[in-house]
Simulated scan of single mutants.
Amino acid sequence: MARVVIVTGGTRGIGEAISLALKEDGFTVAANYAGNDERAKAFAERTGIAVFKWDVSSPEACAAGVSAVEQGLGPVDAVVNNAGITRDGTLLKMSYDDWKEVIDTNLGGCFNMAKATFAGMKDRKWGRFVNIGSINGQAGQYGQVNYAAAKSGIHGFTKALAQEGARFGITVNAIAPGYIDTDMVAAVPADVLSKIVAKIPVGRLGQAHEIARGVAFLCSDNAAFITGSTLSINGGQHMY
């Protein structure tokens, strides 16, 4: 029977690529999304992947969402915590809401999803968590104290939870993408983007499928001896 994986933020950008890669590798994929019903419906029709709507920043919504996935597809064996938002601004201009929303979604979402799924993995003695961090959580970024803090927190969360899960066959790893050619990056002004690319040793933006293949490997049986690790996929921009 195919293993079931939840990919949060799994219907667009890097999340879509992850969902498709895991389906290709034989997982039954549940793609979570937060708001765009039309885009999620189109994704489901195009890919045949089931979609489920909930807000990962809410513990109650995560518990209910996981329950819906389990009722529809079966016990959850793996979680890819990919959902994330940005509310950029310098500290002096950043509101308390901008801070809280990013922390609650990007970092809190990882906790909420682990809380809702860890016990089942423990009982079955097999599980995978892959948490999507960021180069900006490793190196920092001007105007992103909220985002950088949340993503840096993901890396610490990963190492701590890995120690709790190891003896139960549960691995917990992170991937820290660099600048990837997604809609979010495409919205960056051309002159700013060219300066970013100039700092990437391989000379280009990354592709979503390059992140997805890393996730697929970490979710596989072949990665059973890897836990508490962060895989940086950033073209050499930050060697951490």
Rank of each mutant, 00 (worst) to 15 (best):
N36C: 11
L92R: 14
V29K: 00
N36H: 10
S229E: 08
F217Y: 13
T117M: 06
Q144L: 04
N106W: 13
C110H: 09
I180G: 10
V56I: 12
Y142C: 12
G35C: 05
I85R: 01
G143D: 02
V5D: 06
G9R: 00
G137A: 13
L92C: 12
V172Y: 06
G9Y: 09
A34D: 07
A78E: 08
A50I: 02
R39I: 15
F217N: 09
G10N: 04
V80T: 01
H238T: 13
F27D: 04
V7A: 00
V202S: 03
G26E: 06
D77R: 01
A186P: 07
A149H: 08
T86L: 11
A30Y: 07
H238S: 14
P75A: 14
C62E: 14
G137L: 08
F118I: 02
K125F: 15
S232H: 14
F129V: 06
E45T: 00
V192H: 13
K115E: 13
I226C: 11
T117I: 03
R12E: 13
A174P: 04
S67T: 15
G165Y: 02
I180K: 11
W99R: 02
G48R: 04
N222S: 15
L161I: 03
G74N: 10
K115P: 07
L20Q: 11
L92N: 10
C62F: 09
A42S: 15
A63I: 10
N82W: 05
A166S: 09
D221F: 13
A64F: 10
I226R: 00
G235E: 00
E164A: 06
A224N: 12
N106M: 07
A2K: 13
G10P: 00
E70R: 02
F217V: 14
A31C: 09
G178H: 08
G169R: 05
L161C: 02
A148I: 07
T11P: 08
A83I: 11
